[in-house]
Amino acid sequence: MTGLPMKSWLGRTLAAATMSLFAAGSALAGTITVYTSYEEDELAAFLEEAKKDLPDVEVEVLRLSTGDLHARMLAEASNPKHDVIWGWAATSMVDPRILELVEAYEPAGIDKVPPRFRDAGNKWFATTGYMGAFCVNNAIMEADDLPMPASWQDLLKPEYEGRLVMPNPASSGTGYLHVVSILQMMGEEKGWAFLDALDKNMAQYIKSGSKPCNVASAGEYAIGISFALRAIKNIEEGYPITMVVPSEGAGHELEASALMASSQNKADARKFLDWTLSKAAAAEYNEWKSIVTMSDREMPERFLKAGLPADISTALFEVDYAWAAENRDRILAEWQKRYER
């Protein structure tokens, strides 16, 4: 290697280091900071579109998992660092400590979102969501001659003993949506009895929501209770798995957005929120999300191929989000008492 590129590389590194050392992240005009929990790959796609459509707004994004972001926002509450919350679990958004931090805003085009997907007081709205699904490893099913499950009820079959994994609802939003959907669809008493029976087949409760699908994909366990898009992506990666949407109806979670009351650049923050409801954004969501709340969606071919129905609402169990949020502590305490070892 010649000396020159080395020098310029070093120079750039030093310049960058100096800049990031001393330029405290103050809100520059035209710059907004966005906190999100969208998955890395979909986020990259959404941002590319946003850059095209909002050339004069510099969008700085920090992506953390739902729980990490929750903890961070609460810890930063006295001096928030961001202008916008984008695509973050609605059942976390309704935490009163978070709602205190956001400001009501009615973005342009909000009427495209049915009222049940947004806050009555306009504090948040959800353009996308994700739904629960099982990831079933075909190779294991075949090798061990196991039947393909089609429903929650099927998962109780004794031949699945020690072959299931699901997310721990105490640490994973996906885990919580599954538990909530079961308790709501069966009623609490029958719901807990079902979870008791399910526990007998459960090998592990895993901390994260996507991991159960990933370990099933890697053949560590036969069936991972997870969410649909993870399954679809892993199928596209080439893993030998089948996505199963439980016939009783799948639990789901909304991904909500909101404007921070503390924002120093509300004009651009609003512009960005308006964009999240734009046609172009919707087109991107369509490529990546199992649930798009804005009306008139056409399900992409690859989703249909992986096993999603054309009309997603037929596959969903209609979750009562308010109930899910209000009873969270109680349900988790009960769940931990019963199943955490």
């Binding site: 729980g67 640490s171 901390k207």
Partner: peptide, 10 residues
């Protein structure tokens, strides 16, 4: 982690 990131129970 369960308490902080899972349940926002600082």
């Amino acid at each position: 982690y369960n308490q902080v990131s899972g349940q926002a129970n600082f």
